[in-house]
Write a protein that binds this DNA or RNA. Structure first.
Lengths: 108, 108
DNA sequence: TGGTTACATGGTCATTTTACCATATAGCCA
DNA sequence: TGGCTATATGGTAAAATGACCATGTAACCA
């Protein structure tokens, strides 16, 4: 495929890595806590420990997070906190969606 | 689930809608052309017309695009051009990823 | 009216994603 | 050393995604 397509694939990979509720929750936690251990993320999202670990692997593979081991624990943090900036825009899309649904309900 | 989880699910839906190379290509085209007809998008991405139409349905369902019919054509446009702002950050993640790979290659 | 163009939708199959269980690995401590 | 804690990884089954073909629908035109 052409050069452009490669870029879109790379972008898609990163977006796909973010596009899961549990992973977004973890990203949010990291953006607030700076650095979070796996154990705390397991408590936070409430899934199996292996599931959380795999989610983190996906985020790491995409380059969205880095990890650091200390004793028996692993700590994860965002590599680019700017990813959080996007959610302002996303929230506006969500608002607009709700407004649309309201309109549909109203015009019956 | 709790209230927070709902928000993450909504965010994930929007991100998932964006997380596909063809859809990112179409979003890019709309951000530049303002309004694009399905026929042009079919030429652009090179997939089957039905495939492109379904991709557009996904974007619309997420609230990322709106459509307008004129004659036999449908024109799509971004509802929130701010979605483009994210790619600066994404590109920085991509740059960082490449740098990492370089390092891995170099340190052999 | 009949044919053509533009788009949407239903169906199907292959691929990917996700979750959990079981298990491996590695540090810590008694 | 043996057992416990924290994390990662392999396996598997269910669900979601994506691509194409076939077909439906609506506008336009000869």
């Amino acid at each position: 495929m052409n050069k452009k397509m490669k870029i879109y694939e790379m972008r898609a990979n990163i977006l796909k890595a973010m596009a899961h509720p549990s992973r977004l929750m973890m990203i949010d936690a990291m953006s607030k806590g700076g650095e979070v251990c796996v154990c705390d993320l397991v408590d936070l999202v409430g899934s199996d420990q292996s599931t959380v670990s795999k989610h983190l692997g996906i985020l790491k593979q995409a380059g969205l997070v880095e990890d650091r081991k200390e004793g028996q624990k692993s700590f994860y943090r965002l590599t680019r906190p700017c990813v959080m900036d996007f959610f302002g825009c996303i929230e506006r899309v969500m608002q607009e969606n709700l407004k649309e649904q309201q309109k549909v309900l109203a015009e019956r």
